[in-house]
Simulated assay, not measured.
Amino acid sequence: MQSKSGNATGRTSDTAAFEADVRRAVESGHDVQEMVRQLTVQMISKHSLDIESVRQIASAALHGAREGTEKAFSQSAAQLDATRARLGQAVAGLDAALAQVAEASKLALQEVVGRAQTFSREDLTRARADLESLEAMFVETLQNSAAGAKDAAGKILADLAEHSRIHGSAVGRQLQETLGDLTQQIGQVGRSQLEAGLHLAQAGTDLFRQIAAGALGGLADRVKPEPPQDKDS
């Protein structure tokens, strides 16, 4: 059995490799949004699906994206527009990955309900609260990353965070559908299920992590992103 220190070392190594992959994707400038989405989904699928874990992965993605813009910013002011676009695409890729997390949670919930597994109202309410925090976490992580960058990248990230806060995000739009389904499930939980439901509160484990566990392995394949729109349309 691997020790906690071993797990921590492995997690640190994974995070460093993930940041480097995101940095290279942004530096390349090729299909940045899709590359960051794929890398983020793969990273999330390797770890426990809880809010703090996802927050750390989102922060690492933004750190890698910022590092990927450093050379461009230092070359010339003419690179600013292109770099702004790349950073925006990286943030959009992260946003899309988080939307997939919300969708995967909904699919997993549908599966366990389909297998006649029941959850208590407390379990479902806890899951809804965890999911509800995803969009706020996304915007907060953007703001924190912006605050940590004292260069043009910081200003761009701050603008993107403000835009997401005002106009919404892909994860926020997906959550509207997901939370609607979850609220319906909560409403269907009868009094008799309050005691008979599947309780998952022990050892700090929440339902959000559990209902999505079955979807994590195939997260990248099960929920396909919307095809990119034709720029000329």
Rank of each mutant, 00 (worst) to 15 (best):
M1C: 07
M1G: 05
Q2Y: 15
S3T: 13
K4R: 15
S5C: 11
G6R: 01
N7Y: 08
T9R: 02
T9C: 04
G10F: 11
G10W: 13
T15C: 01
T15F: 01
A17E: 04
F18T: 08
F18E: 06
F18D: 03
A20Q: 14
E27S: 12
G29C: 07
Q38P: 00
Q38Y: 14
T40G: 06
V41E: 10
V41D: 09
Q42R: 02
Q42I: 01
M43W: 00
M43E: 01
S45Y: 13
S48E: 15
D50W: 05
E52F: 07
V54C: 13
V54W: 09
V54K: 11
Q56T: 05
I57P: 09
A61F: 05
L62Q: 02
A65W: 06
E67A: 00
T69E: 04
E70N: 01
E70I: 09
K71Q: 00
F73L: 06
F73P: 08
Q75P: 01
S76K: 15
S76A: 05
S76F: 06
S76R: 15
A77C: 05
Q79T: 07
Q79C: 14
L80I: 15
R86V: 07
L87F: 04
Q89K: 03
A90T: 02
V91T: 06
A92P: 03
A92K: 11
A92S: 10
A92T: 10
G93V: 02
L94Q: 04
D95M: 14
A96N: 04
A96K: 05
A96S: 08
A97W: 14
A97F: 12
A99S: 10
E103G: 12
A104Y: 10
S105L: 03
S105N: 04
Q110F: 03
V113W: 11
G114T: 09
R115H: 08
A116F: 00
A116C: 00
D123F: 06
R126Q: 10
R126Y: 09
R128K: 11
D130K: 06
D130E: 12
E132H: 12
S133K: 03
S133E: 07
L134A: 08
L134V: 07
A136I: 07
F138C: 03
V139T: 08
E140W: 01
E140Y: 01
G148N: 06
A152S: 09
A152F: 07
A153P: 08
K155L: 15
L157M: 13
L157H: 08
D159P: 02
L160N: 13
E162M: 13
E162G: 10
H167C: 10
H167Y: 12
H167A: 11
G168Y: 00
R173I: 02
L175R: 00
Q176D: 14
Q176M: 13
Q176C: 02
E177D: 09
T178C: 14
L179Q: 13
L179P: 13
Q184M: 03
S192W: 14
S192R: 12
L194G: 09
L194C: 08
E195C: 13
H199Q: 05
H199T: 06
L200R: 15
G204F: 02
G204H: 09
G204L: 01
T205S: 12
D206P: 08
F208H: 12
F208S: 02
R209C: 03
I211H: 15
I211E: 15
A212L: 14
G214T: 06
G214H: 09
G214S: 09
G214I: 08
A220I: 08
A220P: 06
R222I: 10
V223I: 12
E226Y: 07
Q229V: 12
K231S: 13
